[in-house]
Design a protein around this nucleic acid. Sequence first.
DNA 1: CGGGACGCCTGTGAGC
DNA 2: TGCTCACAGGCGTCCC
Length: 288
Amino acid sequence: MPELPEVEVTRLSISRPLERARVLGVRVGKPLRWPLGCDPHSLVGRAIGPVARRGKYLWLPLGPRPGQGDSDAGGLLLHLGMSGSLAFRPEHTAPAGPLGLHDHFELFVEGGTGSGRLCLHDPRRFGAVVFAPALDQPPAAALLARLGHEPFDAALTPQSFHAALSGRRAAIKSVLLSGDPVVGAGNIYACEALFHAGIDPRVRADRISRPRAARLLQAVRDTLARALALGGSTLRDFSDAHGMDGAFQDHAAVYGREAQPCLQCADPVRRIVQGQRATYFCPRCQRR
DNA sequence: CGGGACGCCTGTGAGC
DNA sequence: TGCTCACAGGCGTCCC
């Protein structure tokens, strides 16, 4: 589920409850994609800093343990994988006993807006929570090293985007999913952006002209911004930290609409498979 | 080095 | 009703 808009919606929804917060307790469930990389108890007592996002990763800065110097600081790199979501639930006292069936990591915190627990719910456990001393230190650095530009980074221009596509012979849909030229568009938003740009997802990336690359970049930005404004997409169970569902799924032009009429031309939307992933597009509105 | 397949997990819905 | 199978929002790793 979680593509960039859902991760950003999550970031925004946990920012307030975590303001000036401190970790009072930690509980862990089943293993996630990678080991936490530290003793969970070593997180207790640390101050939580402003939550940041890079691509689909969240970064939760943590101050040093009580009595330790600044060099003891670190943070948690979080990824929601395919089925992850974060929930913040106000609680007066630290919950005890086992976590919920699919709750695999929980911080009990005391913050400026009161105490509560921040819980990662992830049935498929493709998500991750990893401790690192800093974003540019292992193991965080390696995970972020190969990410492309943030979609709204001013350094990403139609020219540089076109140049990035020109070296890739793979289908444009696959190149968007790779997160190489630009991060954030997953399967839903890559399909939607290509529809709004009028580009056939099977076109080789290096065969896209400059004007069409410019249109695609704009479509990626517009699609992600619209999804963010709508609270993301809730296909099955995604919601923000307060349980609010997204609404973008009701505004998708092609994603999940196989055989239904195209909203522009009424021809049936097609579903194909590219790189083991479903692609939805309109063969009439999206040209080679 | 680019490109594509695999595997990590569990839940759900369709079809028989 | 109950079983089996295909498929689901991501992405690091491996092999060609």
